[in-house]
Design a protein around this nucleic acid. Structure first.
Length: 649
RNA sequence: GCCGACGUAGCUCAGCGGUAGAGCAACUGAUUCGUAAUCAGUAGGUCGCGAGUUCGAUUCUCGCCGUCGGCACCA
């Protein structure tokens, strides 16, 4: 006798062990047809799994939140089956579900091309039509290894061997003639799959994620429960493309990049205005936060980098410069400079000037430091990942006892700034001690606790990023997501006991003896380039008034209003607004369209009526002509000047 | 760095073994117009760079550079 409890609380009893299929059928034929899998006491399993004890069961259908992942995983299998049917000799490796779809990694001499997609998709649909039953089997390790070796599946065999070595059972899923090693769960048959999928992209991927290993061919796809969901997803992708900072940067004439300076940004007047506005804003926040600003050299002798430890670990990513003419050899003893990849060693040099006392701590040295790193060519991305960037960097020199308070202060400041810039969902990763690290465990305990306390006190929820801390200390990473779903680390807070030691920084304590300060490395934007990119995407280019490089356009309707328009511009500028005239001989509709596309927040239209009455017709970005209002000039300017105020305490 | 795709006018893109085309933008002229494109005309290109094949290469082949999508990396 097996008692099955259903989600509504009702209990169904069965005389003998039952599968999910039996349970669903007992409830109704509609459900039996829709059933994809089930949850037994909360665990997702195959619908065909037989239950021989009392349990709570929930039938998973296409409408269940778990369904998508199941479907995507199954579609990945169908993709692999299709590929192996179409391209014999291709080896399979892994194929999981992803955030919005799936991928499968293959091994094949000949590269796949996007032209193959149509053919593969057609075969996948065929496999779904075949309605192949999906069956789970348990194999002996040796048998599985033998099977995969005999079919030439070297990668699968390697993986199976490892599982067998651990003494675990081998779980095989078979669909039709095709089979794969997989823990499941899966749908009962391929016919249950919706055909709402699409192969999207092709890429290389290293076996086991290690660049030292062979590179596999990865085919990505997206899969949904229904055709309309698929369409909606593709539409979302198109919309996201319109928010891409690279596209908006060009359309809004903010910046460009070009071949001769790959990985460096040419800032145009409007883009640079945006930069300076942000810089002015953050500078004021830092001043309020008790920071002092410094500026340190671009070129620094390699000896300092050797001392700091960067040379050993990061010299491949450092640009070097020598003072000698081209062609001259760089000999032993000659000066070799590195263009700084970071600011910390230089800030320590400032700290070390003169004798520091405990009364000087905490000392918060801030710099908008331009750094250069030779990033791998494949890593470059718009202005988000570049080789030349400016950090809103600061190092807080403090005592161990001050770590917690300083960390809290920083998290508060960061929250304030992100709030001002319209970021509501910030993910915070807490990266704790890595396997290879410097410093005593007691110090790590202290540092980790300080960071944890600080993020909690600032009301931040963190997710653990185990073992990903820097070798010198744990870190908080503040991650923002761009419009195409990529995550970027922007803010960071790192506790460092190592650099002060290596660079011999010290202060005189209350006891009159020398002590080592602790360094907190911290950034809010991370880099101006990356952060501006994210800001642009977050606002889809429609920047709030205070950030917009061109805040308003005064557009004339007839040339009789030219003089009045000039007067409006003059007064607006006197009030600190960034306003330009548009006196061109064009219809107002043309001007409206153009400045709307350029994402100018305010359009002040002036015709004869406005000139006579001393008013402006205000049309705001994102609203239509019906929402416009006519305001007295002085009133309008006062209102907008107030609205355009840079946020501050 | 690795795999794949791509690189044609300012932008978006078409073309293709016989040295290039469209729309928008630009420029000139006309038009003075009330909220997302007024009309007409003109001009604009070493087809990323360098080799090779060919009578002839933007087109085919190779190399390099860059961009894009991933992977790896990200102090």
């Amino acid at each position: 006798m097996v008692a099955i409890t259903l989600p509504d609380g009702s209990v169904k009893s069965f005389p003998q062990p039952v599968s999910g299929v039996d349970v669903a059928t007992a409830i109704g034929p509609g459900l039996a047809k829709a059933a994809l899998a089930m949850k037994v006491d909360g665990a997702l399993v195959d619908l065909k799994k037989v239950i021989d004890r009392d349990a709570r069961i929930e039938i998973v259908t296409g409408k269940s939140p778990e369904a998508l992942e199941l479907i995507r995983h199954d579609v990945a299998h169908v993709l692999a089956e299709a590929v192996q049917e179409l391209y014999p000799g291709t080896q399979i490796t892994f194929g999981p579900a992803t955030e919005d779809g799936f991928y499968y990694d293959f091994v094949r001499e000949q590269p796949f091309t996007p032209d193959d997609f149509g053919k593969i998709e057609a075969r996948m649909k065929e496999i779904i039509d075949r309605n192949e039953e999906i069956v789970r089997e348990e194999w002996q390790g040796a048998d599985a290894v033998k099977h995969f070796e005999s079919t030439g599946e070297k990668y699968k065999a390697e993986w199976v061997q490892e599982i067998a070595n651990r003494g675990e059972k081998i779980s095989i899923y078979r669909q039709g003639k095709w089979l794969d090693l997989c823990v499941g769960p899966h749908l009962p048959s391929t016919g249950k799959l919706p055909k709402a999928f699409k192969l999207t992209k092709l890429s290389g991927a290293y076996w086991r994620g290690d660049a030292k290993n062979a590179q596999l061919q990865r085919i990505y796809g997206t899969a949904w429960a229904s055709e309309s969901d698929l369409k909606a997803h593709l539409t979302r992708l198109e919309e996201a493309e319109k928010r891409d900072h690279r596209r908006l940067g060009r359309e809004m004439d903010l910046f460009h990049v070009q071949e001769e300076a790959a990985g460096s940004v040419f800032w145009h007047p409007k883009g640079w205005t945006l930069w300076r506005t942000l810089e002015g804003y953050i500078r004021r926040r830092l001043e309020d936060g008790g920071y002092v600003e410094v500026k340190t050299p671009q070129l620094v002798d390699r000896r300092l980098w050797e001392q700091s430890g960067h040379w050993d670990k990061f010299k491949d990513a450092m640009f070097l410069a020598t003072p000698r003419a081209e062609g001259a050899s760089v000999e032993e003893g000659d000066r070799v400079y590195a263009i700084k990849p970071m600011n910390c060693p230089c800030h320590v040099q400032i700290f070390k000037q003169g004798l520091k006392s405990y009364r000087d701590l905490p000392l918060r040295l801030a710099e908008f430091g331009a750094c250069h790193r030779y990033e791998p060519s494949g890593a470059l991305h718009g202005i988000m990942r570049v080789r030349a960037f400016t950090q809103d960097d600061a190092h807080i020199f403090c005592t161990e006892d001050q770590i917690t308070a300083e960390s809290i202060k920083f998290c508060d400041l960061l929250r304030q700034v992100y709030g001002d810039l319209g970021f509501s969902d910030v993910r915070v990763k807490f990266s704790d001690r890595p396997a290879i690290r410097a410093g005593e465990d007691a110090i790590w305990d202290k540092a980790e606790k300080a960071l944890k306390d600080a993020s909690k006190a600032a009301g931040l929820e963190t997710t653990l990023n185990p073992g990903e801390g820097a070798f010198y200390g744990p870190k908080l990473e503040f991650v923002l997501r761009d419009t195409i779903g990529r995550d970027w680390q922007c803010g960071t807070l790192q506790v460092d006991f190592v650099l002060p030691e290596r660079l011999d920084a010290s202060y005189v304590g209350e006891d009159g003896a020398k002590h080592r300060p602790v360094m907190l490395h911290r950034a809010i934007f991370g880099s101006f380039e990356r952060f501006i990119g994210i800001v642009i995407e977050n606002y889809a280019g429609k920047l709030p008034l205070w950030l917009a490089p061109v805040q308003g356009i005064v557009a004339t309707i007839v040339s009789d209003a030219d003089d009045y328009a000039r007067e409006v511009v003059k007064k607006a500028r006197a009030a600190g607004l960034r306003v330009d005239p548009d006196l061109r001989n064009e219809k107002i509709g043309y001007k409206v369209r153009e400045h709307t596309l350029a994402k100018v927040p305010l359009l002040l239209a002036v015709g004869r009526r406005e000139a006579e009455q001393g008013t402006v017709a205000v049309r705001r970005l994102g609203t239509g002509s019906d929402a416009q209002e006519t305001l007295a000039l002085d009133e309008a300017i006062a209102r907008f000047a107030k609205e355009a105020d840079v946020p501050h305490a």
